[in-house]
């Protein structure tokens, strides 16, 4: 079992209901697979067509393999001014 720790920002935090999320999987995931799994599990996350996943302070391209110790963050757009 692998556990990924994900920091949630903005509306992602509202949708999930907490600012950190622990996500358990059987096998290692790529960044895009984790994002897809989260978006499938939380339908309102799935409605965000553009959602930024950061892996170790870098905008993930989607195909990078994730390590349990990676610093992950889910960053939706915000529009306030």
């Amino acid at each position: 079992m692998i556990t990924y720790q994900i920091r949630l920002f903005g509306i992602a935090r509202e949708i999930v209901g907490q600012s950190w999320l622990a996500w358990e999987t059987e096998k290692p995931l790529r960044a895009g697979e984790l994002q897809a799994a989260l978006q499938a599990h939380y339908p309102d996350l799935g409605r965000l067509a553009s959602l930024l996943l950061a892996v170790n302070a870098e905008y993930a391209q989607g195909d990078e393999w994730l390590q349990p110790e990676d610093e992950l963050a889910l960053i939706p757009p915000v529009s306030g001014g």
Binding site: I11, D44, R47, A49, S50, L52, P77, V78, S79, G80
Partner: peptide
């Protein structure tokens, strides 16, 4: 490059 498309209008509130 970051956000190619906007979120649904009812999902992300304004200030």
């Amino acid at each position: 490059d970051l956000y190619p498309t906007p979120p649904p209008p009812d999902l992300v509130p304004s200030c």
